[in-house]
Simulated scan of single mutants.
Amino acid sequence: MVTLTRIYTRGGDKGQTSLGDGARVPKHALRVEAYGTVDEANAVIGMTRLATRAHPQADSMLARIQNDLFDLGADLCTPLKQDEQPGQALRIVADQVTRLEAEIDAMNAELAPLASFVLPGGTEAAAQLHLGRTVVRRAERLMTQLAETEAVNPQAIAYANRLSDHLFVLARWLNKQAAGDVLWVPGANR
């Protein structure tokens, strides 16, 4: 368990931060951008949960996802080593990705197929989930960019990819229980 006795250290006052392995890097390093964006996604999901209190199943999924996002941040914060042994660092694992897939499949089975793109909106929770989805997509783009130059856990990238799908389907699932999705009408305002 993590114990924090002091919140500020002054260690970052000159624009650097420490990674999980102790290495010092600029605060604008791509790896820091990636896990910082994961943290941003987690904050959006935290705000979304304020609007999902009436939906215990959705709120329970989002609670698990928030915990997973801390795992994902820890994974990205600790550079993957070639000789790393299993369990040496906290990493996203295939079971976490599989759980998202199972939840997506269960929710999607209750939804009609899409005949148009969905606009972010509908219920408050659905609109916030769409915001979360876009932040997760940005994190995924940063992760894949990072993977071009540094080793990144492939399950971490798969998790981010599946999570954005999950948030999209969860938004649709919540909208189905209310007024429905807001659909794009191409050229509607010409």
Rank of each mutant, 00 (worst) to 15 (best):
D13C: 06
K14N: 07
K14W: 14
G15M: 10
D21K: 01
A23Y: 07
R24C: 12
P26S: 11
H28V: 02
A29N: 11
A29V: 01
R31N: 10
V32H: 02
V32W: 06
E33A: 04
E33R: 02
A34W: 04
G36H: 03
T37F: 04
V38G: 00
E40L: 07
A41G: 01
A41R: 01
N42E: 02
A43D: 04
A43W: 07
I45D: 01
R49L: 06
T52P: 15
T52N: 15
P56R: 14
Q57P: 08
M61E: 10
D71P: 05
D71H: 08
D71Y: 03
L72W: 12
D75N: 07
C77S: 10
C77V: 03
K81I: 00
Q82D: 02
E84N: 04
Q85G: 00
Q85A: 06
P86F: 13
L90A: 00
I92C: 03
A94T: 08
D95M: 11
Q96P: 11
Q96M: 13
V97M: 05
T98L: 14
R99K: 11
A102F: 11
E103Y: 14
I104F: 11
D105N: 02
M107H: 03
N108H: 15
N108Q: 14
A109R: 11
P113I: 01
A115Y: 00
A115H: 14
